[in-house]
């Protein structure tokens, strides 16, 4: 990728990926979903998920799957509020950039 994904944008993408499912998602699935959108190493997400969990944007719970436990990450209210903020900011940010690229910004 030519463009860097900053910490905030990565948080936003992860929160969006997790919020896709009502019941939340597990680590492998989140990683694969995020990897569909941005180029990042498979091992990058563990610290990010952990931090989001510590910041109470994500909650974890264990659910049984195929005779073993699987840890699910679920978005919290705080996380949802944060994601909404991110989305809003992203829209204005990307709209401005797109406008600039399209030559629509006039002095």
């Amino acid at each position: 990728m030519v463009f860097n994904t900053g910490a905030a944008l990565l948080d936003a993408i992860v929160l969006a990926a997790v919020s896709q499912e009502e019941d939340g998602l597990y680590g492998y699935k989140i990683t694969q979903d995020v990897r569909k959108v941005i180029d990042l190493s498979e091992s990058t997400l563990y610290p990010v998920l952990r931090r989001l969990q510590k910041d109470e944007c994500l909650a974890v719970y264990d659910r049984e799957f195929a005779g073993r436990n699987r840890r699910y990450y679920k978005i919290t209210d705080k996380g949802a509020a944060q994601l909404a903020l991110y989305k809003e900011e992203w829209c204005s940010y990307s709209a401005k950039i797109s406008a600039m690229f399209a030559g629509r910004i006039t002095r």
């Binding site: 597990y26 680590g27 492998y28 699935k29 563990y46 699987r70 840890r71």
Partner: peptide, 10 residues
């Protein structure tokens, strides 16, 4: 645990 599950889910 995370990586163990991760590899089991793969």
């Amino acid at each position: 645990k995370y990586y163990e599950e991760y590899l089991e889910d793969a």
